[in-house]
Design a protein around this nucleic acid. Sequence first.
DNA 1: TGCTAATCTGCATCAATTGCTAACTAGCAG
DNA 2: CTGCTAGTTAGCAATTGATGCAGATTAGCA
Lengths: 136, 136
Amino acid sequence: MKSPTELTEAFRANGLKVTPQRQLLFRLMHGNTMHPTADALFSEASVQMPGISLRTVYQTLTDLASMGELRLIDVGAGAVRFDPNVDDHHHVVCQTCGDVRDVYVADSQNLSIDGLDGFAVDSTSILFHGSCARCA
Amino acid sequence: MKSPTELTEAFRANGLKVTPQRQLLFRLMHGNTMHPTADALFSEASVQMPGISLRTVYQTLTDLASMGELRLIDVGAGAVRFDPNVDDHHHVVCQTCGDVRDVYVADSQNLSIDGLDGFAVDSTSILFHGSCARCA
DNA sequence: TGCTAATCTGCATCAATTGCTAACTAGCAG
DNA sequence: CTGCTAGTTAGCAATTGATGCAGATTAGCA
């Protein structure tokens, strides 16, 4: 994801306004490796800006996602998570503490797939389940 | 997933009762390659047994899943899907029609992962997104 | 400084799933 | 075959994550 400053320019260039709410969320997500849910981010944001709406968090994060600045990840735990890392990477999920971490998989683009039957693959997402170092 | 007859025995052996509702669901899921949602299965079941409860569908499918007879798959489309194929396999999802199909990935157990950092991987699920032959 | 489209808040709504309980029944014991 | 009882079912309430909506507000250009 771009820096808050770059995002400000990108938003304006797209005819979108840059509000204090959005700037706060830019800052909270920039370099964030926690893979927060909308709700977690809302809590964080509320500390610095009491009264901010959960709706606004969803809105802004959705905007960022559709601009390709962040990725939505669904680890099947109820709520979607947001990941500012848009590199070609994948995720490990700790079954105990729910922690999500980025990992890089060699040759993930060149997997040998049987049964495709004419299906054209656009993207691949790999999810590893297990236990993190702390919970093991 | 085992055959309806085998499941009947397995349920009894576990102290679970075999009701007509469960038998119907055994039959509907056996060899089913449609990856139905609970709701889709409920509709199908309702044809043969009007009055069956959606709650019962969820209950029975959850029981089957915890007995290892079927797998829950979440393609991030809102509702969980049920897959009676418990082999080591993965899924492709058509972004257009939503269709889900089983595929087999060579060496999916031996991916070279960077950034694990002490994380112990138990299971891997790979999701391929793209367009199926019909929608392309 | 004013205008106007974009945004925000707060609440209603929706969809998937689970919780709860009274009525019912599979399946064993006698 | 009959009765008992633990396990099940139906139906509805409740929960959770997410989105729709409208009136008040505001960013940012002229």
